[in-house]
Design a protein around this nucleic acid. Structure first.
Lengths: 208, 208
DNA sequence: ACCTGAACACCGTTCAAGT
DNA sequence: ACCTGAACACCGTTCAAGT
């Protein structure tokens, strides 16, 4: 094994290296596997070495969010309604591809400043569509909360005990739920999202 | 101090006592304060004593969800549209009053079987309103994901670093965001929820 | 049957010490 | 300036032992 146990002056630890390794762990094994000690282990470094470069665990998570935010391809400008759909779809793709992101946003209350340009683009669309600031904020809430809820529960739902609760319902006792049993499960959730998003945008943007 | 360090045969530990103490902790100090060791301490009991009664930490959380679900007042029957609004409002009140519930639902993928009657009532409303099963599932998704997102982010947002990110935006660089600065913060989120909910129900239920 | 202490395999982080 | 080991104050849970 030629893996060095110690860093050399020529091979210094950097925030970038730490974030890269942390992203590898979290993409492959999920958020619970991401511990400071594990990141340090994978780098062949003492746990405390990380703290000079990323502050603490929350600092590491923000740095990871920054990388994801900066990796999002820009959304081209177009007619406001279409542009809103594209922006929300981009966020949806991001949450799907990196499901830990929503957990960090909601669970730890963290955020990356690098999403703000995309937010600005979205609110500019609202403005061009004729929404006043209050209506724009409400539109944002409806769209983002739906998006966030969808991302959280679509991800966690795949392995959740809550599925078992739903399945174990007695159709004789709760008939309206019973009627759903045939439909649940074998549906395209991607299609549902696209459909629901289109409906919501139609609702929120005036005169189309 | 007369606090007994040991249980007597006449004062046996029960799942109910454990859940009561756990709810006290979580309502007062939040989910991070809820540890098996802390619950045991508050009961004057060894940590391992809990495991015979609640299985494990997840079992304790489910038992806590059961209590909250059973404490929800029933929603009176009425015209479908109104009944849907009432059911969603009841869920919203519950999530507001016990903000840890949404974290447990989303973060741990747990659920209580005792919410299923309310779900059945909701899908019966959808049925009476003329929605086919597919449309009903989509309506449920839109409403619940919005509700869940609202509850999660309204709660976590109050203390979050993400607020700081928003506030620190330079209005010259991102003008559409800058225009919102005066509006954000001093709004009634409760009113927003009621308004948004009414709009969503109007969208999802046909012909009103 | 019910409860316990000791132990295992973890956490994030502080601190004083090394180079 | 950058990295380290040892330590602190925690976790959930297993196991063998007590009554």
């Amino acid at each position: 094994m030629t893996t060095p146990r110690r860093r050399r002056a020529r091979d210094p630890l950097t925030a970038q290296k730490i974030v890269t390794v942390a992203l590898d762990i979290v993409e492959g094994e999920g958020l619970p596997a991401l511990t400071m000690r594990r990141v340090a282990d994978d780098l062949g470094v003492a746990p405390m070495s990380l703290y000079r470069h990323v502050g603490d665990r929350r600092g590491l998570l923000v740095a990871m969010l920054d990388v994801v935010a900066l990796a999002m391809p820009p959304v081209p400008h177009s007619e406001p309604r279409e542009e809103v759909v594209q922006i929300l779809s981009r966020l949806h793709e991001t949450f799907r591809a990196h499901s830990w992101v929503v957990s960090v946003l909601s669970g730890d209350g963290l955020a990356s400043s690098h999403v703000m340009p995309l937010m600005d683009q979205l609110f500019d669309c609202f403005d061009r569509a004729g929404l006043d600031p209050l209506a724009a904020i409400r539109a944002w809430q409806v769209l983002f909360y739906y998006l966030a809820g969808e991302s959280i529960f679509a991800h966690v739902g795949a392995v959740a005990q809550s599925r078992e609760v739903f399945r174990s319902v007695d159709p004789a006792e709760l008939p309206a739920i019973g009627r759903l049993h045939d439909f649940a499960g074998r549906r395209e959730e991607q299609a549902d999202f696209a459909h629901n998003l289109a409906c919501l945008v139609d609702l929120l943007l005036p005169g189309s």
